[in-house]
């Protein structure tokens, strides 16, 4: 066969633009292996972000709650006389936002056996 077409051999009249195969290789790998790597990074990043969020929401919140409100409030109310304490309670109960907070504080008061 080689002898029959030996004038031509395996040469062809076709050609490609310069740097074609290098560019193709990059493009194909970006669309295949690259997309998998990007997805993998996104997935790991997403899981890490979700873990941080969970720690922020539950871990830190639950750690702060017993120390912040009760100790500060306990020290503050302890110094009040009965009249001041009654005025303070009435004032806070009248405010819907603060009364929410005082409801939570009742729980902490119970913890401190007030």
């Amino acid at each position: 066969m080689e002898k029959e077409f030996n004038k031509v051999g395996r040469r062809m009249p076709y050609r490609v633009p310069e740097g074609f195969f290098e560019a193709q290789e990059k493009e194909i790998l970006a669309k295949s292996v690259g997309s998998k790597t990007r997805f993998h990074r996104w997935w790991v990043g997403g899981v890490a972000a979700a873990a941080c969020l969970m720690v922020g929401l539950f871990g830190l919140h639950s750690a702060d709650e017993p120390t912040f409100a009760p100790t500060a409030l306990y020290g503050y109310t302890e110094q009040m006389n009965d009249e001041e304490l009654t005025t303070w309670v009435e004032f806070y109960e009248a405010d819907i936002f603060l009364s929410d907070a005082t409801t939570n504080m009742d729980i902490t008061f119970n913890n401190y056996n007030l």
């Binding site: 077409f5 004038k7 031509v8 062809m12 009249p13 076709y14 050609r15 633009p17």
Partner: peptide, 14 residues
């Protein structure tokens, strides 16, 4: 655009 038309033998073969 990406064919060499100079070499007639190669073209005829293709």
């Amino acid at each position: 655009d990406y064919v060499d038309y100079e070499e007639e033998g190669l073209l005829r073969f293709q």
